[in-house]
Every structure is written in structure tokens, then in C-alpha cells.
């Protein structure tokens, strides 16, 4: 499988007067369709790494190649478009727009792409809500949904533009163990069904031990990188 995302010698330093180096020359590549977990203690730099992977943050040095494009040469507008098309985000705190319904939240990435919403697009959004099991509550405002439901909306939303990569930061961070299991099953199903690459930061060993690959970040460096033999 070709690499869908690649980091080359990524370093990240915060601050100007008092400099804190968070990442030290990280080299990583993720294969298309793989299911990866990134683990590490708080402050290890794993969230910074994910934000850099998602082009939400720029590295101090190094190259990020997403879908074959080096992000260094892209303008902020092109970067926004790349994010919109190629990357889906799932965050720990759901990050839905509370003013919008579940369905509208799912459609939002598509609307941002400024393409007209056709019946097919609407059907696809409904299908995604079906997959995450939220058909009944799709017209509820996000603010009126339970944590597990919101997280599933966020998952459906991350899939809306058929991104090649889904980045998830503690997607089950504040869910109970039953919901965690459901969310994992869902992510796996999507991984198999759409061939979507998943890169998941997690504290949850139940998620991490089921991933095809575990990358441990420690003090801004890759401490461990193991791939399941039969993955």
C-alpha cells in the first residue's frame, strides 16, 4: 500500500523567548487504509504531532506530505481546501456546532467545499447517520444529544467528504466503556468499508491494542513503533 501521509524530520518549538521543543525530528509514514494508534503520556507531544499531521499547526522544521502534496508550499487557502477534502477530524470533545442539527453538522464539511447540495449528497449524509445509528435523532440540535451520540455525529461528519485520512484525538476520551466499544467497532467498520486511513491518539488500551500499528511518542520522539504481523 502507498503512503497517504508522511512526516519527514518534523520538529516543533513553541515560544520565542523561552523555547520549548515539543517534537524532535519525527519521521513517520502511514499506509493507505491502515488503522494506527498513537499513544504517549500527557505532554509527550502526541497531540502536537496530530495537529501537525492535520495541518492545523505548522512545524518549526520538516516536511509533511499529505496525499503526495508537500504542505510547505501551500497557501493557507490551499491548506484549508486540502483539509476540507482529504482529512476528517474527530476530537475528544466532539466539537459539533451546537446551533446546528445532527444532519446539518454532518453536511457542514460539504457545504464548506461550496459545492451544491444535491439529493445524492443529502442521501449520503443520511446514510452516514444510518451507519452511526442516529437516523432517529438526525434532526435534533447537537446540543440536545448525549455524549456518545455527539461523538457518533462527529464521526459521521468526518466521513462526509470521503476523506482519505481520519485523524482522531482521544475519540473515546470521555465515553463510557460500552460507548467506547461501539465507537471502536464503528471506526473499524468504516476502515474496512471505505478503506479510510485512521490515525488515532488514544489513552484507551482497548482501542490501542486493536489497532494495526502502535506508535508510542515519548518526550517528543518516537519511542516505539510496532505493526501487527498479520495486518
Amino acid at each position: 500500500m502507498p503512503n497517504v501521509m508522511e512526516l519527514k524530520e518534523i520538529t516543533k518549538i513553541y515560544g520565542t523567548k523561552i523555547q520549548t521543543q515539543v517534537l524532535f525530528g519525527i519521521n513517520l509514514a502511514f499506509e493507505e487504509g491502515s488503522f494506527n494508534s498513537i499513544i504517549g503520556q500527557s505532554g509527550s507531544g502526541k497531540s502536537t504531532l496530530l495537529n501537525i499531521l492535520g495541518s492545523l499547526d505548522r512545524p518549526t522544521a520538516g516536511d509533511i506530505i499529505i496525499n503526495g502534496k508537500n504542505t510547505k508550499s501551500l497557501s493557507s487557502k490551499e491548506l484549508s481546501d486540502l483539509r476540507n477534502e482529504s482529512i476528517g477530524f474527530i476530537f475528544q470533545f466532539h466539537y459539533l456546532l451546537p446551533e446546528f442539527t445532527a444532519l446539518e453538522n454532518v453536511l457542514m464539511p460539504y457545504r464548506i467545499s461550496k459545492k451544491p447540495i444535491t439529493k445524492e449528497v443529502l442521501d449520503y449524509a443520511n446514510e452516514l447517520l444510518d451507519i452511526v445509528g442516529l437516523t432517529k435523532v438526525k434532526n435534533n440540535l447537537a446540543i440536545n444529544m448525549s455524549g456518545g451520540q455527539q461523538q457518533r455525529v462527529a464521526i459521521a461528519r468526518s466521513l462526509m467528504n470521503n476523506p482519505k485520512i481520519i485523524l482522531a484525538d482521544e475519540p473515546t476520551g470521555n465515553l463510557d466503556s460500552d460507548s467506547t466499544e461501539q465507537v471502536y467497532e464503528l471506526l473499524r467498520k468504516i476502515n474496512h468499508q471505505f478503506g479510510t486511513t485512521f490515525i488515532i491518539i488514544t489513552h484507551d488500551r482497548h482501542i490501542a491494542e486493536k489497532a494495526d500499528r502502535i506508535v508510542e511518542i515519548k518526550d517528543g520522539r518516537i519511542n516505539l513503533d510496532i505493526t501487527k504481523a498479520n495486518a
Binding site: S80, D81, R83, F91
Partner: peptide, 9 residues
């Protein structure tokens, strides 16, 4: 959130 999803500035 909107920016993460790629909304233009």
C-alpha cells in the same frame, strides 16, 4: 471547528 473542517478565513 469550522476552520478545522477547512472553512476559508
Amino acid at each position: 471547528i469550522l476552520k478545522a473542517m477547512g472553512i476559508q478565513n
